[in-house]
Design a protein around this nucleic acid. Structure first.
Lengths: 250, 250
DNA sequence: CGTTGCATTGAGTGTTGTCAAGCTCTGTGG
DNA sequence: CCACAGAGCTTGACAACACTCAATGCAACG
């Protein structure tokens, strides 16, 4: 069997262990599920938590609310992601995790998961893998926020979601349309751009024939132009083998 | 015995295990050390790596180089940090880790560390803890880059380093001066601000009597004003109990 | 048919980036 | 001891990008 794209970065010899871990974690959670309405919080900032979740359906965001009313979306979770692995080890949570859509999760007690992971390296690897993936996305986010202008951030984000949904088998790899259940306000909080400017960037991309966005659906009209735009702030993994980037850079 | 501040966020019942893990990891690395000159790379982007390191002395930065010449510093490592835990599991590395100063590291083979962590939950927890700390700082970085203006980012960064050095017992908690072996170019790459603007921000802070920076030494002249400035983008842990923040916010 | 939430647009402002020059310090070689 | 070079720091002038404020459009929904 061949390595799925989502595990392309894993050391190949660890793949069997990870796959056993995925099964074991799913097994522990099987049968314990919960559904949430849009806007409902899965975890609240400032508390300790005793449960670890796996997203079965729907989208979630992890948001840091600043004392003066600003918000920063730190991560977005889609089906298949584990949520709350960190909080298995921490006494306190700094962010709120809330549903963007109608959503369903499975869950298991932290304590049980910790015990299982202590006795089963496969489970431990599964948990570690989730954190490593989170971290990879955080790195991408830092680069995007730190070095990208508004257009680059937007393009990078769109391609990132497209890739993640394809990895999770929620859309076909070469589908040009995919769901994005976020308002422009959400995008603003995710990209660190004002809401008004998000709108202007989207207009520009639309006018250039790159992307349209309507009622929660994104359509990528010119993927390669978008990749060109996002390229400077994308990591090699997302770029794939496509090295067309440094062309006419200053 | 009382919990050290650096472990304040860990679930208290895990503290003994973590401390055993720290010892076990140190034991595995004991005797294998290496020194580096400023600018030397510990790990290079694009390769696989077979070694995990622990910083014994000096500062390191993890940098993502963009194809058009821009750079983003993603993390900074100081003594006590483990470097390369991620790469124990990944086939490829996306960032370069390089020394800012003369530095010394201890190291152990990835494979050995992985085997040890599979058989010893204490070691596994020690590795996990490093990643969780990294992730906590990445979250702080995302918030700072996404929501903070140049002044806020600078203030947050200064307080962050002060706290980390104090946690690592490299300076006294209430010392007002600490080393910061970074050029303004480095700060620019870390904060996502142009080099010229970094200079302007520093001048402003100096003129307001908040901070001075000379030849790699920072002096915090008015810590509480700096905390006030950074407050919006700081997490509750860094703020401590100080809740003076939302005062006159719009 | 008004209300509500979200999207869109324009005008004006301000923070930050860019370009270009000059400065300070330090180490090196004459 | 001095001249020089190089790295890093400082400053000013100007341009660009992004933010704010404010108004309007638009669709869903009761």
């Amino acid at each position: 069997m061949t390595t799925p794209r989502r595990y392309a970065l894993l050391r190949p010899d660890l793949l069997p262990s990870l796959q056993r871990g995925v099964t074991a974690v799913a097994g522990l959670m099987a049968g314990h599920s919960k559904t949430l309405r849009p806007g409902a919080a899965l975890m609240e900032m400032g508390e300790g938590h005793e449960t670890v979740y796996r997203v079965r359906a729907g989208w979630f965001v992890q948001v840091r609310a600043l004392p003066d009313g600003r918000n920063q979306i730190i991560e977005v979770f889609v089906p298949g992601d584990l949520v709350g692995v960190k909080t298995m080890f921490l006494a306190q949570q700094f962010e709120t995790v809330q549903a963007l859509t109608i959503a369903a999760v499975e869950h298991a007690p932290c304590r049980q998961m910790r015990d299982l992971s202590a006795s089963n390296p496969d489970v431990s690897l599964r948990l570690m893998w989730q954190i490593l993936e989170d971290e990879r996305r955080l790195h991408a986010g830092i680069v995007s926020l730190g070095q990208g202008n508004a257009d680059e951030r937007m393009a990078q984000m769109l391609l990132d979601f497209h890739g993640r949904l394809a990895d999770a088998d929620l859309i076909c790899e070469d589908a040009s349309e995919f769901p994005l259940p976020m308002t422009q306000q959400h995008l603003s909080d995710l990209l660190g751009i004002s809401e008004v400017h998000v709108n202007r960037v989207l207009r520009r991309l639309r006018e250039q024939g790159l992307v349209t966005m309507h009622s929660g659906k994104v359509r990528l009209l010119n993927r390669s132009a978008l990749e060109m735009l996002a390229c400077p702030v994308q990591d090699a993994f997302e770029r794939g083998s496509l090295d067309t980037c440094e062309g006419t850079a200053s």
